[in-house]
């Protein structure tokens, strides 16, 4: 069964690995150059590109490895040839799932190791600076493109493709469903699951001239909110002003609304005077509430999220085996 599975799978497998090899070569050439630098603006394209690639890979594995593995057999009727050899359906599916999961793990691990290594100088700088404008590795788009979670994504996407193929029995429809469902899960997890798997750190800090980072107003000149400097390397969930009793205040209280003149009234004030004016908030008893996942939780969160995806994959596999009996 292994021979047949590999024979059917080898073209797709080898083309993905060839593409990955090309990417690894590019990263290996450009990577050493990044060590020790303090500005990475010239590699924005590669930085964004590798990140995108980390998400495209699992999607591609789901659609082009997972779906055809079963859907193509059901579509062309060849399942009735192979199921009538001395091979049970369960063994047939187990071999296919096993081969695919192993290949997906290797592919995702390979790319993730290469990208994580390549981007390590960038990530280190982004995590070290409090005022960094760069995305640190705790930021959702980067988090999913580093470490071990890409392996979880790849395995999940592959099994999802197989399951969609078993249910829909049509390659094209199953590919579409796989891509949509994978994207939905990928987007839902950072919003609905990841912030809460570990209780986030709550911190209330005074608002001072020194830590004021951003002042946000609307078009009519009403001051909406301020943010303060955030802990380095953390994933900040909330950064909001609260009053003495701890309730969020938005827009800002009337006492500081005069800090910025309404639009069209005279010259725009200089930054320092606005900062000084707004930092009265501290004296008025307002404080800034910070909720965040500290950077030190990168690996615990990585392990938990990978575990979550592997658990989902196991549940989908169980579903596949259950559904297999009903196929004809």
């Amino acid at each position: 069964m292994t021979w047949l599975t590999w024979r059917q799978f080898r073209v797709q497998a080898l083309s993905v690995f060839a593409a990955l090899a090309a990417v690894v070569v590019v990263l290996a050439i450009t990577g050493p150059d990044l060590v020790g630098r303090t500005s990475f603006t010239d590699v924005d394209f590669l930085f964004g590109g590798t990140m995108l690639l980390m998400y495209l890979l699992p999607a591609a594995l789901g659609a082009f490895w997972g779906v055809p593995m079963v859907a193509r057999e059901l579509e062309t009727g060849t399942h009735s040839l192979v199921w009538n050899q001395t091979v049970t359906r369960r063994r047939w599916l187990a071999t296919k799932l096993g081969t695919g999961v192993l290949a997906a793990t290797v592919a995702a691990a390979l790319l993730s190791v290469a990208v994580t290594w390549w981007a390590s100088p960038i990530d280190a700088l982004a995590s070290a600076e409090r005022q960094s404008s760069m995305l640190n590795r705790m930021a959702p788009p980067v988090f999913g493109a580093r470490g071990i979670v890409p392996v979880g994504y790849a395995v999940f996407a592959f099994v999802l493709g197989v399951a969609a193929g078993i249910v829909l029995r049509r390659t094209m429809a199953a590919m579409a469903v796989t891509l949509v469902a994978f994207a939905a899960v990928l987007l839902a997890v950072p919003f609905l699951v990841r912030p809460y798997v570990l209780p986030p750190t709550d911190e209330t800090v005074p608002i001072t001239e020194q830590n004021l980072k951003q002042i946000i107003g609307d078009e009519s000149g009403v001051l909406e909110a301020v943010t303060v400097e955030e802990p380095a390397g953390a994933w900040v969930l909330t950064n909001e002003t609260v009053d003495a009793s701890g309730d969020p205040v938005r827009p800002l209280p009337a006492e500081v609304q005069h800090c910025i003149p309404a639009p069209g009234e005279g010259e725009p004030p200089d930054r320092q005077s606005v900062v000084t004016c707004v930092s009265q908030l501290g004296d008025l008893g307002y404080q800034q509430q910070l909720t965040y996942q500290p950077g030190s939780r990168f690996w615990p969160l990585q392990w938990m999220e990978t575990g979550l995806y592997l658990l989902l994959s196991a549940a989908l596999s169980w579903f596949c085996f259950r559904h297999l009996r009903r196929l004809s």
Binding site: T76, G77, N84
Partner: peptide, 20 residues
């Protein structure tokens, strides 16, 4: 179709004679 032993005993060629 109950197991490998049973599958070995029975051969079946479906109507559309599927091949890869």
């Amino acid at each position: 179709g109950s197991g490998p032993g049973q599958l070995a005993k029975v051969g079946f060629v479906a109507q559309n004679t599927p091949v890869y």
